[in-house]
């Protein structure tokens, strides 16, 4: 019984670790994609927000697809 509880605790711990590692990987990836220079130069990374801004300003949209290796 004690051995089973230990295994359960270990499994839950492993899941928590894996999830936090995935979240931080995604965070790193997000930061890498949205580099500070681009944001400082007026680039947005949220298409829906950009569409709304285009509607408000009546400016055309310039949408760039750029592969990040």
């Amino acid at each position: 019984m004690r051995w089973n509880s230990l295994r359960l605790v270990l499994a839950v711990g492993l899941c928590v670790l894996l999830q936090s590692s995935m979240a931080s990987a995604q965070g790193r990836r997000g930061r890498r994609f949205q580099d500070r220079d681009a944001i400082a130069n007026g680039w947005q990374f949220d298409y829906e927000a950009a569409k709304e801004a285009a509607r408000r300003s009546k400016k055309p949209l310039m949408v760039v697809f750029r592969c990040v290796p």
Partner: peptide
């Protein structure tokens, strides 16, 4: 001339409507 546009950079194709962004 960049500021004449609302500029957006998309780095993930998963969330893009490919009927519109057909290339």
């Amino acid at each position: 001339i960049a500021d004449e546009f609302v500029r957006v950079r998309l780095t993930q194709i998963e969330s893009s409507n490919l009927k519109l962004f057909d290339f």
